[in-house]
């Protein structure tokens, strides 16, 4: 059974059509990498999955929940799906610990001590337990992104979305974030990752997709995608990026 299924998803910004009918499925525990040129609608698409953006036509079903204007569904979706942003978007006025425990306490209604124990565990998992009481501004980019991953994981989501998690980072910090993501992938988390890190895609992705101009151009296994792509558009893209 697929945990995410999108059928002919379309989205307009004013007159501009950002998504021109995207159809795809993601199975439970699958790791999906999406790549494509800038402005091709990758972010728009994965933001539709947790309803940061509303699609205007087609349907998206996440874990059996139909995405609609139903307020109940929106609330449910947000706690099923965790998201990690390109620019971290940590809350600068809260400590790392508060950043992570905020949602469990207020949304999942956990007790503070319970939430903090869980947060500590997550910080251990992403490798920065000693930074718990610092403010985001005092951390390096790589550390911040790892906190952001921990923050998303604290809600115990079934699905994790990553929107170019490493493209705002200095090269030496990319690895530490990718390592955390690889570990996460191996633990069986369902992940959709927008990234241009082809090494990551080769290593852990179950499938790779290419977006172009609001459309899904190619969908393939990593091996096939890199060595023997189906479409010319992919070849062009790969030649530009590699």
């Amino acid at each position: 059974m697929s945990i995410i299924s999108a059928k002919d998803v379309k989205k307009w910004y004013g007159d501009f059509q950002a998504l021109k009918g995207v159809t795809m499925e993601v199975g439970e525990g699958e790791v999906l990498v999406i790549c494509g040129p800038s402005g091709s609608g990758k972010s728009t698409f994965i933001r539709c999955i947790n309803r940061l953006e509303q699609h205007q036509d087609g349907e998206i079903i996440v874990d059996g929940i139909q995405l609609s204007n139903d307020i109940k569904n929106i609330e449910a979706i947000r706690s099923e799906v965790g998201m990690v942003f390109q620019s971290f978007n940590l809350f600068p006025h809260l400590t790392v610990m508060q950043n992570i425990t905020l949602a469990p306490i207020w949304v999942r209604k956990k007790s503070k001590s319970e939430a903090e124990a869980k947060a500590m565990e997550l910080l251990n998992r992403v490798g920065i337990p000693e930074q718990a009481d610092k403010f985001p501004g005092q951390l390096s980019g790589g550390q911040q992104q790892r906190v952001a991953i921990a923050r998303a994981l604290a809600m115990e989501p079934k699905i994790m979305l990553f929107d170019e998690p490493t493209s705002a980072l200095d090269p030496e910090m990319i690895k530490e974030v990718l390592d955390v993501m690889k570990e996460l992938a191996k633990s069986g988390m369902t992940m959709i990752v927008v990234t241009h890190e082809m090494g990551f895609a080769k290593e852990v992705a179950d499938r790779v997709m290419l977006f172009d101009d609001g459309q899904l151009v190619e969908e393939n296994t990593p091996d096939e995608f890199f060595t023997n792509p189906k479409s010319d558009r992919t070849k062009l893209f790969l030649s530009q990026i590699l």
Partner: peptide, 13 residues
Amino acid sequence: NKGQFEAADAVGL
């Protein structure tokens, strides 16, 4: 920053 709103939404507040 607009990202703050999105992050708040994304964690389900």
